[in-house]
Amino acid sequence: MASKSRDTETQINKEPISIGRIIMYIVLLLGAVVMIFPFYWMITGAFKTWTEVNLMPPTLFPENPFNIENFVYAFKTAPFAKYFLNSVLALLGCIVTCSFTTILAAFAFSRLRFPGREFIFSLLLSLMMVPYEMIIITNYRTIVTWKLHNTIWALILPFMSSIFYTYILKGFFDSVPDSLYQAAKVDGCSDWKYLWRVMVPMAKSSLATIILLNSIATWNSFLWPMIATNSKDVRTLPFGLYAFMTEGGQRNERMMAAATIVVLPMIIVFLFARKYIISGMSRGGIKG
């Protein structure tokens, strides 16, 4: 009996082609194609000529894959290099400051004892329900009052802290056993040192997730940069792309090239860091 059931089990394990599996792979494959195709279309489109783009039926692969004319055009007519630099500056500014404040706040809310801690934290959480559009208005007024309007600072300042990321990181910090903290204390370690020497290295993957989510959000942010800046000198890529499209006429292949410039860095970052995103998502206490 026992050996028989074991036989059937190994058979199942060995058999690579069961119907269920095939269906599952087909569905996954379809999903992947649906997800990837727009990107593929954009990137290949950027290498096509105007006539090729308008061909019917369309070509799946550009005739001359080394045709970088569209990129040259994009960089020439609009200051994409400048936009790119602005985007990078805003991104670095946001990530560095936001990560720093997030770490400190998460540690305080998770580990330090002070009166009103739970109350303050729930108050902050409830602030997450205020609609973004409303925050934008008050933020705009603040920025104008401080005369930071139309500077890179305007792009960084409102995003120097985040309740949502603090919440995620606090979730991880809460899961670290008390005894580690007590052990560090007994070893003579200060709170500050404990945070940087023990908590932060342990939260590596949660932090990586936060930084990635933050990067993507900052890189793609559109509404705020559009409101807070109006000169080309401080524009970032998404708004630059939008301006390029409205100013540049209906030339699809050029828009594709511009869009590729905007999206590619994030795709590359994502490819390198996807391991962290997934493990951070599943471990960092974010659900749903």
């Binding site: 056993p177 580690l180 007590q182 204390k185 007994v186 003579g188 200060s190 023990v198």
Partner: peptide, 20 residues
Amino acid sequence: VSSEKRGIGLVFQNYALYPH
């Protein structure tokens, strides 16, 4: 006196080693 200043060694029931 706080733990930092007592100069003691403590072994926890669950060891509490730093995992990283």
